[in-house]
Design a protein around this nucleic acid. Structure first.
Lengths: 215, 215
DNA sequence: GTCTATACTCAGATAGAC
DNA sequence: GTCTATCTGAGTATAGAC
């Protein structure tokens, strides 16, 4: 059950006829540039000319690849959650059959933290701009995190069933607090800080399982 | 040491000469309206005409009270952290002398959660728009949360000194994870959800102190 | 103090040459 | 496919009446 990937969000299921591999490469470069700038500056603050410059082209040229700025941001959002959830699921699925549910959770935490702190401009962009895009765009893309949330629900539920988690905590709140504390890292994490992303993931895991109280 | 308030951020230390109590009231209403709309829609998405409408006036009229939209948002940001930290400090200071450091932390969590979920349009606006305002504005206001962060640092350090918290967790990360999980509530909390703000605060406290593992 | 009308600016979008 | 030049609309800001 944990092995199937989330359905890829295919807003643009087929290439425009006539678009070449070259165009596809350029298109990808534009998306990467957009994700980067959105993550750093937000949606409204990022001008198409900024994105074009980052991608080595000009504002007007973007319109060969995208209908509008809104169209562009939708593609960025569309790629985001599948990148993250695929990374997390892959890591969890790497575990041996004998892994306990708690070990699966720990692996998921690790993978999620590393993904958002190290790789993903896309994830960072998503978190930053999901609140900034037009409402109808947002509505179309909040389903993606929900699917990912369901994956975590399963992870936690598995551990609970196995008797590894306390039963006096609301499972939904538990999940939201865990993922929230990780998501918020994007606001304070600095790559050159004293702790590595790996170490930070360990701290989260320890706190999540055992709390901060001395015993 | 926990009783002094954070220095109020006084961008506008004195009234413009000639400004009346009436103007001051109106000004406040405009700020409240702006905080509300910023928290709901973000910075760029909120037009001055929206704010004016909400405050029962017109876009042009705002310029009697504020030099610019940027000036207005700075006042909103300026009020935010002091409202939050005053609420939290007040609650913590209400505790009897005999309260343990852990009880102080629990009270702080409670107050912070209730404040952002129930009251504060200002806090919600702050969280939402701090990433959306021009960089030089942001720079001027990131100090405010830092001061609040220091208050929490003290709260946690007190408990650690008293031997109530484990010492194998990085205190800074611990603080950021705790406050992050709370901050992120603004993204998922719905007033009509199954759990009250009070109950959610309890869940956070339990998870923070004792973790999710079954014992 | 607040209104209405209007000027200005910025950035998204389009057209057409190459 | 990409460029430059240009159009247009939205929204901030100003002016001047009341």
């Amino acid at each position: 059950m944990s092995s199937e990937k989330l359905a890829p969000r295919t807003r643009r299921p087929r290439r425009k006829k006539g678009s070449s591999p070259k165009a596809e490469t350029k298109r990808q470069k534009i998306l990467d540039s957009a994700a980067k700038l959105f993550s750093l500056q937000g949606y409204a603050q990022t001008k198409l000319s900024d994105i074009a410059k980052e991608a080595g082209t000009h504002a007007g040229s973007l319109y060969y690849h995208f209908k509008s700025k809104e169209d562009l941001v939708q593609d960025v959002l569309g790629m985001t959650m599948s990148l993250l959830s695929n990374a997390v699921m892959a890591k969890v699925n790497e575990l041996p059959e004998t892994a306990t549910p708690s070990e699966r959770i720990a692996a998921g935490i690790q993978a999620h933290v590393l993904h958002i702190l190290q790789r993903g401009f896309y994830t960072q962009a998503y978190m930053k701009i999901i609140d900034q895009v037009p409402a109808h765009v947002r509505r179309a893309y909040v389903m993606a995190p929900r699917a990912y949330g369901n994956y975590w629900r399963g992870l936690l539920e598995g551990a609970r069933q196995a008797g590894e988690l306390r039963t006096d905590l609301n499972p939904t709140i538990l999940r939201l607090l865990l993922l929230g504390s990780i998501t918020w890292m994007l606001e304070w994490y600095k790559p050159d800080g004293p702790l590595s992303a790996d170490q930070i993931a360990d701290e989260v895991t320890k706190l999540f399982f055992d709390g901060a109280r001395k015993r």
